[in-house]
Amino acid sequence: MPLIRFTAAMLFALLGGIHQSWCDEPRRTSTTKSIRAKLLRPDLILQSLESPDVSVRRQAVLDLGQCHAKHPNLVPGAMQLLRRSVNDPAFDVVIASIEAAAMIGDLESFGAVAEVLRGDHTPSEAGRILDAIDVPSLRPFWKTSDPFRVVDAAKHLQQKATRQHSMASLAKIKIPTPSSTVIASGREAFMIARCDACHQVAGYGRASGPDLRGIGMCYSNTELIRHILQPSLDLHDTGRFEKFLVTDGRVITGRVIANNLASTDLSSVQVQTDLSNPDAVLSIELKDIEQRQPSPISPMPVGLLNSLTPTQVAELVVYLRSDGGRLAPADSSHEH
């Protein structure tokens, strides 16, 4: 009997070592007492997926994706588990399921979570779903091709999605290497964010706003994102709006497109109040102007990036810094 127990103990230890090699090196996780190593063991993943604790289930789904990506077929019924998790009542687990599918990055894993695009979601949930699913490893299964016929559902989510990007939320995005595919996606992001309403890059868009050529030489990736998020951060004279206080009490803000102040026979200025609309022009009589001063607010709207997923923001940065693919962006490998 002691020999049997000894043999069983040795087998258990051996299997534990195999579990560790199955899913690679230990992952460091924090506890209230110490930092300890946790093995991504299939049996523990299966057990954790049944936990009543949302955070435990969420981590188990991520572990499932990591384990299956490195060792397919190791976790029994992995795709069925992923399909079940994407329907979890806790939305954090739903997002983790999409992230797990992105780790695996094949057609079967995308198929396991694709139905989430057809669900009835709040605007905030729609934004989080699109942010999670719009990654390079999953794009081929819904953007390049559409085997599960979910493109229309994704477009519907895009129309209702809301998100609030910040420097903190975009701090971890990875700026991709320029390629024809990235440039094309960046051009699409340029138009989705309505940058083309006022700016022109590589022949796309309107040139009513400041010229963006050479912007990659002026700003790093981080600086460019910050200036788009906070357009009034650093204003230049080119394209800057002015504020006019007129005698009837109105304050008119816009860009002077026909300045007649130096003329003796003309008595008004033409002010464009919206760079994206060439017809938004007001004529102001010089005699009615009580005050005139530069505006401290940029004509560029705040929140333009909120219409984009983090992946699209990264591609937009490449598009802008490469002048639409015509220039090689300055080296910024140290960023993001």
Results as ranks from 00 to 15, higher is better:
307 S>W: 01
267 S>D: 11
130 L>R: 14
145 S>T: 15
46 L>Y: 03
244 F>P: 07
108 E>S: 11
68 H>A: 12
78 A>S: 15
69 A>K: 07
99 E>V: 03
162 T>S: 13
191 M>Y: 00
319 Y>Q: 08
313 V>S: 09
307 S>R: 15
43 D>C: 01
70 K>N: 14
171 A>Y: 00
21 S>T: 13
291 Q>R: 15
56 V>P: 12
2 P>G: 11
61 V>S: 05
47 Q>N: 12
132 A>Y: 03
118 R>Q: 11
225 I>W: 04
32 T>P: 15
21 S>H: 11
25 E>V: 06
185 S>T: 09
215 I>W: 05
12 F>R: 07
211 D>S: 11
333 S>N: 15
191 M>A: 08
223 E>G: 14
245 L>V: 12
244 F>D: 05
232 S>W: 00
4 I>H: 14
265 D>S: 12
207 A>F: 00
59 Q>E: 11
73 N>I: 00
89 P>D: 09
48 S>P: 06
265 D>N: 12
11 L>N: 08
236 H>S: 10
3 L>R: 09
21 S>C: 09
65 G>Q: 04
86 V>I: 12
105 G>D: 01
104 I>C: 10
15 L>Q: 08
169 S>I: 01
191 M>S: 11
214 G>N: 06
269 V>W: 02
37 A>P: 08
334 H>T: 14
319 Y>M: 04
17 G>S: 06
60 A>Q: 02
17 G>Q: 07
288 D>G: 03
208 S>L: 00
146 D>E: 09
33 K>I: 06
285 E>Y: 00
285 E>T: 02
49 L>K: 06
315 E>I: 01
210 P>N: 03
265 D>Y: 09
91 F>E: 08
197 A>Q: 13
321 R>P: 01
197 A>L: 07
307 S>M: 05
174 K>Q: 11
259 N>G: 05
194 R>M: 02
258 A>Y: 10
5 R>P: 06
279 D>E: 13
146 D>F: 01
58 R>Q: 13
93 V>M: 02
311 T>N: 13
275 L>M: 14
78 A>N: 06
